[in-house]
């Protein structure tokens, strides 16, 4: 889920979105007693003993790009370290970062995994509390830079999974990159806040429908989990 192979995942506190379906709602505020401050140097030393077992390091959240200077410093430190430079560096993001942030991170980043909560602005706003214009700019920008590892679609039955929505989403993603890797993640109620707890989880049949629909729409690199 956090990128290719076995990865050291760093969860950064704070997120600009306020997703109803968020599984880690405690990571949304900028501060919480469950988070701790750490320097880049200390984090590198935490990663070092695990390095022989790793393909790489992923920053996640919360929204990692809200702490882009830290991420850039971490990835730069990893690449400068003889023992750790073979580790790949990935960002797991909601995509709501301006181009300047990406241009800052991409020189030290191997891949980015972007969540696309919804293609339609009003559905996106309903799900996340925010518009998706930055997300829709980030995805093509990352694809052009050859750094877009995959786009994830978190599908909630009856909210963002209609065949019509999925068809348009697939068409748009393939217009960005015909070989784009798409990962469909079925909504799970475990861990979410009260507002989303009553939502249905997709059945195995619905997951198969998603797979069939996206495959028919031309998505060749598709994972459904």
């Amino acid at each position: 889920m956090d990128g290719p192979g076995n990865r050291f995942v760093v969860f950064l506190q704070g997120c600009g979105f306020d997703c109803l379906a968020c599984h880690n709602p405690h990571t949304i505020p900028r501060a919480t007693p469950r988070a701790r401050s750490i320097t880049v140097a200390d984090l590198v030393e935490e990663i070092r003993p695990a390095a022989p077992f790793l393909s790489g390091v992923t920053v996640s959240g919360g929204e990692a790009t809200l702490q882009a200077p830290f991420v850039r410093a971490l990835f730069t430190a990893l690449r400068a370290d003889d023992d750790l430079s073979r580790l790949t560096t990935f960002v797991d993001t909601n995509g709501s970062a301006p181009r300047a942030v990406w241009d800052d991170l991409l020189p030290v980043t191997d891949g980015v995994m972007v969540d696309l909560k919804a293609l339609d602005p009003q559905v996106h706003t309903y799900l996340t509390g925010h518009a998706n214009d930055l997300v829709l700019e980030s995805i093509p920008h990352l694809a052009r830079a050859r750094k877009l590892h995959e786009v994830r679609l978190l599908l909630v039955p009856g909210v963002n999974d209609s065949p019509e929505q999925l068809g348009r989403t697939a068409a748009w993603l393939l217009s960005v990159d015909p070989e784009l890797r798409v990962k469909v993640i079925g909504f799970r109620a475990h861990g979410v806040r009260a507002a989303a707890r009553g939502w249905a989880e997709p059945t195995p049949e619905q997951r198969e429908d998603y797979r069939a629909l996206l495959t028919a729409a031309g998505v060749r690199d598709l994972v459904v989990v």
Binding site: M1, N6, V9, A21, D115, L154, I185, G191
Partner: peptide, 13 residues
């Protein structure tokens, strides 16, 4: 779990 050192599992979203 294969993905260890996970301080806070984040399946999705």
């Amino acid at each position: 779990r294969v993905i260890s050192l996970e301080s806070s599992p984040r399946p999705a979203g």
